Computed example of a mutant assay.
Amino acid sequence: MARIVHAHLPTLKKTASYYVMHIVVAAAVAYAVTGNLWMAFTLSLLEPTVQAVAFFFHEKAWERRAVVA
């Protein structure tokens, strides 16, 4: 596991910073729409978590594409 983390550290750091930013934006939007703080926090954690995982694999696909091109 440590080898995988080390090999992908720049992408993992970028993913983590994107995740935090996304949670803040999602919480603000969810609160503006629902007016419910609990719902806003729930939505802001669920959706960005799924997006962060998708983002990591998206970045890896683009890196592979760059190598082939």
Results as ranks from 00 to 15, higher is better:
35 G>C: 07
56 F>W: 13
49 T>C: 10
12 L>Q: 02
64 R>D: 06
45 L>R: 04
41 F>S: 10
39 M>C: 07
61 A>C: 05
19 Y>K: 01
48 P>Q: 01
26 A>W: 01
13 K>T: 13
11 T>Q: 12
56 F>D: 00
68 V>N: 13
18 Y>T: 08
61 A>F: 14
49 T>M: 09
44 S>T: 03
25 V>F: 07
12 L>F: 13
31 Y>L: 04
8 H>I: 00
66 A>G: 02
58 H>Y: 11
47 E>G: 08
12 L>H: 07
47 E>Q: 11
15 T>D: 07
37 L>Q: 04
32 A>M: 04
3 R>W: 06
34 T>H: 10
33 V>T: 10
45 L>Y: 11
45 L>D: 13
24 V>G: 08
65 R>T: 07
11 T>I: 11
36 N>H: 14
47 E>V: 14
27 A>R: 00
1 M>C: 04
52 A>H: 09
18 Y>F: 15
17 S>F: 11
21 M>T: 09
52 A>V: 00
44 S>P: 01
8 H>L: 05
7 A>M: 09
30 A>K: 00
47 E>C: 03
57 F>N: 05
23 I>H: 00
61 A>Q: 14
10 P>L: 03
7 A>I: 08
32 A>K: 06
48 P>F: 01
43 L>E: 01
62 W>T: 07
2 A>V: 08
50 V>N: 02
27 A>V: 06
20 V>I: 13
47 E>I: 14
23 I>D: 00
38 W>I: 15
45 L>I: 12
1 M>A: 12
23 I>F: 03
67 V>A: 14
46 L>P: 02
5 V>N: 08
15 T>S: 15
13 K>S: 05
11 T>M: 10
66 A>E: 09
7 A>W: 03
59 E>G: 01
35 G>S: 15
42 T>G: 13
3 R>K: 13
58 H>C: 05
62 W>Y: 06
30 A>H: 00
49 T>A: 14
62 W>K: 03
64 R>K: 11
3 R>L: 07
54 A>H: 05
67 V>D: 10
37 L>M: 12
65 R>C: 07
6 H>E: 10
50 V>M: 13
60 K>P: 06
61 A>V: 13
